[in-house]
Design a protein around this nucleic acid. Structure first.
Lengths: 227, 227
DNA sequence: TCTAGTATAACTGTGTACAATTATACAATT
DNA sequence: AATTGTATAATTGTACACAGTTATACTAGA
């Protein structure tokens, strides 16, 4: 392993991103024990940068420290999900309001296109694409809002929420159709420049997706108990 | 330096808390360069736990990493303040709404007492006490809300906001009187169980304190430019 | 005096070693 | 069989060393 400060990504950051991907992707399951030595061997690095990567995951609550100093992948719970969705709802509302106020024609055209693609995907029953274009739209709104701190928090909340999607069984009964309808109405409200209304619609849109997360979490906890 | 996992606080955490106190307290000023070796000598520890403390401060944006890998105390800006206050406003609203919904008689009695003390302090012109009891009230609402994630974020936002207070000149023209009036109205609304209204009042309350922060920041930036 | 180039120093990123703590396995006792 | 005590192993927390990179100071040339 060589070091470098410019250009190349640091070992610590690479390992952080990789581990986050595995946690969010559901490969590393909740409650799984973490062993620093094993992990450092796996990545072929020393414990020093590994520990820094783990600490970041701990601060972001994807990993928790036990009283004895050991780490494990954070457990999931319905209470946490409610708390996370509440934060996300509030901040997505904030961001959407600001994005609406800041929007220019170019932004609106991009949103229009993405919304159109999302609606088409929903009509075709292509749930993967609905999620993809949904994320694209949210990220466009993040950029437009220029709310640096809110966006940073939202990205973290979204990691947790993505994990909820992945740990549960692949229930295909997503709510693509409703989501598409909500996004269409949202776009029209943003394009009309109605910031307050856009904020409310976004909050509702987020709250409507909480149930799916709860179901996924409960299904996961169920399978864990049966083991 | 001895290590211990239980009971005693870890070196890393101690240094993290100490540095945070100095940054938030305005002793370590924005833009100040950080030297790992010097700091490790000052605390009489090795660079390893120091770096972990610094990394946490970096994630919390109290410290920023330059392209060359060096660290400095985060600069302050009006734009950041606006972004932080937006987040705080949204989440304090969320938390206040939940606290109102969850409140029991004991909670309300505590809030009533704290509000009374705050109002008295404001009438006496004791600005320090107004800030103290204000923080107490906010933290009671945090506890009542049971919104783990929102509270964690709020604590971080409050660190930044506290710093804005400290870096500027000690302008005594605080808005204690208005703040007291707002808190009184807020308490009555919470006690009446009107969660939606309490949310709105809290959001306004936070937004009303933004101006003072901006003035403090601009005063600080002014003094820095003159040097 | 200014610029370019170079040697040196300072600093960060990472690997390794060791100390302190916690967990585990096993024997002895009831 | 259950429990307690003890030796051992595993694991984390911290210090330290070194490599690679960036900054600095100094010299030479125009």
């Amino acid at each position: 392993m060589v070091s470098s400060t410019q250009g190349r990504i640091s070992t610590k950051d690479y390992v952080y991103l990789q581990l986050k991907k595995e946690i969010v992707g559901g490969e590393l399951l909740p409650e799984a024990q973490i062993n620093e030595l094993d992990l450092s061997k796996r990545f072929d690095i020393s414990r020093t940068p590994l520990r820094e990567a783990l600490q970041r995951l701990e601060i972001e609550e994807l990993v928790v420290r036990l009283p004895n100093g050991r780490l494990k992948i954070s457990p999931v719970s319905v209470e946490d999900a409610r708390s996370i969705f509440s934060v996300r709802s509030a901040l997505e509302g904030l961001v959407t309001k600001a994005a609406t106020q800041n929007s220019n024609e170019r932004d609106l055209e991009e949103l229009r296109l993405l919304t159109e693609l999302l609606v088409k995907a929903a009509n075709l029953g292509n749930n993967e694409d609905v999620i993809y274009y949904g994320d694209q739209i949210h990220h466009r709104l993040y950029d437009m809002s220029q709310h640096k701190f809110a966006v940073k928090i939202l990205n973290n909340m979204n990691d947790h929420i993505m994990r909820y999607r992945r740990i549960g069984p692949n229930t295909s009964h997503t709510r693509s159709k409703e989501a598409a309808k909500e996004h269409l109405e949202l776009y029209e409200t943003i394009a009309a420049g109605n910031a307050e209304q856009a904020e409310k619609l976004m909050q509702k849109h987020i709250n409507n997706s909480l149930d799916a997360a709860i179901q996924s979490i409960e299904a996961h906890l169920q399978t864990q108990n049966c083991k």
